[in-house]
């Protein structure tokens, strides 16, 4: 691999500046160490933790955030930001639930996903051609989308009893849920797109130095818009997945989800400033936060502390990123 995520390059030849090397190393491997530490800790402290039932449950529970975060990784690397995925997630679920009766389950789910893609495309256009700051653009669209979701559900919880609607969310193959497969597939596809294709190179370039990318003949706006679309699509997939699992559509289903997604990506070590990152990092980031969640459950610790711990971890990740950049 030739991209910046390789450990060998992230440590610049900075002889005589050992502090830089140390910080970069922490930033590089921090997520791996943290993940393993929590994993080992829970394995020792809890009897239940290391059972296939529990681990599969952790995977399934984290699927929705995981799917969105994998797409979000490409978005962040390309220099974008998306605060609307929570609202989009809810809208897609609500649309799928609403359409289940008239359209039948399969088509309803597809329409739900399409709604997510549409929001993503809109965000992409606003943030690139529209030259609106991504934070503001996606914050505004998230408010609008949440409003549309309320109109769709008319403020109620939509219960679906259309046969087959819950197959996607409830189904299993070889004892593993479809949701888990879907998450795995998303991670592999996003990772492959980023590392093996010309598209991935353009994504890195667009975030790393947009002007240099443009002067290399890359259509930066197009690349960025595509990552917004991907983010919306992923939110759509996650939305219908959860709606199918619980057989309901609800306008406020995704509240706070955008923060979980960004937290997972950042904790993994992908930079919020763009140009650097990897999908495998995000996978570990999502799993780390999921393990902490699981650990608090298993060890029956007051969940109040969980918030504090998660906030501290996110802060540490971002601080490491900022410091390791500043010293270069």
């Amino acid at each position: 691999m030739t991209l910046v995520t390789e450990p060998e390059q992230a440590v610049p030849t900075a002889a005589g500046r050992p502090r830089v090397v140390r910080l970069s190393a922490v930033r590089e491997y921090g997520i791996v160490v943290a993940f393993l530490a929590v994993f080992v800790f829970l394995s020792i402290r809890s009897e239940v933790f290391l059972t296939s039932g529990n681990l599969l449950n952790v995977l399934e529970q984290s699927a929705a955030v995981g799917i969105i975060a994998c797409a979000g990784t490409l978005l962040l690397i390309s220099g974008g930001f998306d605060l609307s995925v929570g609202a989009t997630f809810a809208l897609s679920g609500a649309v799928a639930a609403k359409m289940a009766e008239p359209l039948g389950a399969p088509l309803a789910l597809l329409v739900g996903i399409a709604a997510g893609l549409a929001v993503g495309l809109l965000n992409g256009v606003l943030a690139t051609v529209g030259r609106i700051n991504p934070l503001v653009a996606t914050l505004s669209s998230s408010i609008v989308v949440a409003g549309v979701a309320l109109i769709v559900t008319e403020g109620f919880l939509i219960s679906v009893d259309t046969p087959g609607f819950d197959r996607l969310g409830q189904g299993e193959l070889f004892g593993i849920s479809y949701a888990t497969y879907l998450w795995g597939a998303f991670a592999v596809l996003c990772g492959a797109a980023l590392n093996l294709t010309t598209y991935g190179r353009r994504v890195f370039a667009a975030g790393g130095n947009p002007e240099a990318a443009r002067l290399s003949g890359i259509r930066v706006d197009l690349v960025r818009a595509s990552t917004y679309a991907l983010s919306g699509l992923a939110a759509g997939v996650a939305g219908v997945l959860v709606a199918s699992r619980v057989s309901t559509g609800q306008a406020d289903a995704g509240t706070g989800m955008e923060m979980q997604v960004i937290a997972a990506i950042v904790v993994g070590g992908t930079s919020i400033w763009g140009g650097q990152g990897a999908v495998w990092r995000t996978v570990l980031g999502v799993l780390l936060l999921a393990l902490i969640d699981n650990g608090f459950n298993l060890l029956q610790v007051d969940p109040i502390y969980q918030q504090i711990l998660q906030g501290a971890i996110i802060l540490a990740a971002v601080a490491l990123d900022a410091w390791s950049r500043q010293r270069r």
């Binding site: 190179r201 790393g208 130095n209 290399s216 890359i218 140009g275």
Partner: peptide, 21 residues
């Protein structure tokens, strides 16, 4: 620095960037 190269990317990654095809 500002317009030509991706400074944090490898030499290899920079050399092929304009002609990925």
């Amino acid at each position: 620095k500002d317009q030509g190269l991706l400074m944090d990317t490898t030499v290899l990654g920079n050399v092929t960037l304009a002609h990925l095809g």
